[in-house]
């Protein structure tokens, strides 16, 4: 860790947001690796990804330590206070993303023991969409760009729509052939995890907007996840 030569207050604040970016980078790599492991049926990669979640926890503790120190010793106000507080919140969100990605890697390990299924294609596409969102929001954080963050916040609906379509597809699949239930359940959880990653990315977007503007986003976030009320009639497939 580069804790070299950090002497000034400015430097301490900068170090905090650099560590947040680094933590985000590890989460991005973890999510990317988990999706690749699923797509390429690469169990060794999945193992490595599960291991790398530790690094995220380390970085989260480091951000917490640095932020608490700044709060206690420097008593920041205004944008400096917001930076410190949002760093704590964003690192929480990233830590959750790391956990979800790790869980995907674990499920990839299980799926790789079974026969390959076409259904992973939709998930891979959804995963790419999540990666795009995560990258965009972390870029917005690095650039302190509220507009870019708002874009991420609005685009979450696309992930929700993908999730709905995968959800229905998997339900239909399971009804057609009950032998696929255990496999499809893993796929369903992966889809749910990805959908959650999208939600955490929008939470980060909200923090970025708060950090740059000093006020929260007013309107309600667009909600496209309809699976809570989604069913597929049994007759349809028999």
């Amino acid at each position: 860790m580069s804790e070299h030569l950090v002497k000034s207050y400015e430097g301490e604040l900068e170090q905090i947001s650099t560590t947040v970016a680094q933590m985000g980078g590890v989460a991005e790599a973890l999510l990317q690796g988990a999706i690749d492991a699923l797509q390429r049926r690469d169990s060794a990669l999945a193992d490595r990804m599960i291991e790398s979640d530790r690094r995220i926890d380390e970085l989260e503790r480091s951000i917490e330590g640095q932020s608490v120190k700044v709060l206690a010793l420097r008593q920041p106000v205004g944008v400096d206070l917001r930076l410190t507080v949002t760093a704590l919140r964003i690192s929480n969100e990233i830590e959750r993303i790391g956990d979800l990605a790790k869980n995907i890697a674990k499920r990839a390990l299980v799926l790789n023991r079974e026969n390959p299924v076409r259904l992973t294609q939709g998930l891979v596409r959804m995963g790419r969409e999540c990666l795009t969102q995560l990258k965009a929001v972390l870029d917005a954080y690095a650039a302190r760009d509220a507009e870019a963050a708002l874009d991420v916040w609005r685009r979450d609906e696309e992930i929700d729509e993908l999730y709905n379509s995968i959800f229905r597809e998997l339900l239909t699949y399971m009804m057609e052939d009950p032998r696929t239930i255990s496999l499809a359940t893993h796929l369903l959880f992966i889809a749910k995890n990805l959908e959650r990653v999208g939600d955490h990315a929008t939470n980060i977007a909200e923090q970025v907007v708060y950090l740059t503007r000093g006020s929260y986003i007013g309107e309600d976030r667009p909600k496209g996840d309809a699976t809570a009320s989604s069913t597929v009639p049994y007759e349809q497939t028999s």
């Binding site: 580069s2 900068e14 947001s17 650099t18 970016a21 680094q22 985000g24 980078g25 590890v26 991005e28 790599a29 790398s52 690094r55 972390l138 690095a142």
Partner: peptide, 9 residues
């Protein structure tokens, strides 16, 4: 800081 703009571990 380079790590802030480019996040590849």
């Amino acid at each position: 800081p380079f790590a802030a703009s480019f996040r590849v571990p």
